[in-house]
Design a protein around this nucleic acid. Structure first.
Lengths: 186, 186
DNA sequence: AAGTCCATGTAACCAGTTACATGATTGC
DNA sequence: GCAATCATGTAACTGGTTACATGGACTT
């Protein structure tokens, strides 16, 4: 099945949430491991409930707002998630549009390439910083006991660190290519 | 438009190729920046030709095989590619299924997580090695003049290095999480 | 007065994947 | 005898994106 459902289950395994909350969390810049739109979320939540992996209860919020549906995970849901996690994964090929463009760098004037690289570098540096800040927050939230692998925050930290090192490495790579371009032409 | 067309154009900007060749190159483990299936390629090539970005000439290969269509780029195609390359890009969010699973690590027994991490580490290490080897080949092929940004191989090297550092960083991250898991439990 | 935030959903479209189809040759 | 390689394509399905739809309160 589509990984979207597991993205939803992954968050709901930690705390009950509404569809809206789920979208916020999944698309937040700090933990964007699986961006998802509302229109995918709501039908998927309904399907998951049909299958007995979730259940919801309605919550009347401030009078004028539509009634919220707060979803929470069932035991069956937790088991289904565990099973999926244990399945082996093929590493994803990173389909990076920017790399595809860089592959055509030889068609451009050096200044054009340099401009693109600076732009991309800035974007990734920004993301790296967002990860760093979020990591600090989570570490503070977790307290001194950072070794406890039963704590969901332990897992959060591992994932944030992955994102952070990815973004940092991207910045380093941009700098590397920029230096290659600079060192040429006497 | 879909980036598939630009993946095709990117390769055809360097040399004439058949649909089959294109699939081979795009899916080769060494340069998998945009894996594509045949069924996407053939219709897309036809469309690109209609638009005047490509042209093909038939080549009778060994008698028993279907006649090849060797596509090559037109001036208009090259221009369209250049234009696309110059458009700004949003960095892609990496949708890594494994990270999504690691996010649920707290649901697993440590040995289970460790197993998964070792598996993933091995796959990425293998890929890193493939990139390294490919990089050496391309460097040899390019000769001493590695600074010439007009040489398509200069661009190839930049992209291969991106893939290589990505895979290496992934391995480092796996080791990092493994060390966190090992250091716990007295 | 315009735009954003909460909170839900539906409909239409497009891209990408899986499966199906053909066919002789070369290597194991 | 079986699988892989070259070489092309079509059909059906599915997952994801874009656009549409509603609606009151709060901020600028």
């Amino acid at each position: 099945m589509s990984p979207v459902r597991y993205a939803l289950l992954s968050l709901l395994a930690r705390e009950p949430l509404t569809g809206y909350d789920l979208a916020q969390l999944l698309n937040a810049r700090i933990a964007p491991f699986w961006p998802v739109r509302y229109n995918q979320i709501y039908p998927e939540l309904a399907r998951l409930e049909e299958e007995g992996l979730l259940k919801h209860h309605a919550v009347e919020s401030t009078s004028y707002r539509p009634t919220k549906k707060v979803y929470e995970m069932t035991a069956a849901g937790r088991e289904a998630l565990r099973e999926w996690v244990l399945l082996p994964v093929e590493p994803t090929v990173m389909r990076d549009e920017f790399l595809l463009k860089i592959y055509n760098l030889w068609l451009l004037e050096p200044e054009e390439t340099i401009h693109q690289l600076h732009e991309q570098r800035a974007l990734h540096a920004e993301r790296a910083k967002a990860y760093e800040e979020h990591l600090e927050e989570v570490k503070i939230q977790m307290g001194p006991n950072t070794q406890n692998h039963r704590d969901p925050l332990f897992a959060s930290i591992a994932v944030i660190e992955a994102g952070m090192t990815y973004e940092r490495q991207y910045v380093v790579w941009c700098d590397h290519v920029l230096s290659l371009l600079a060192s040429e032409v006497p």
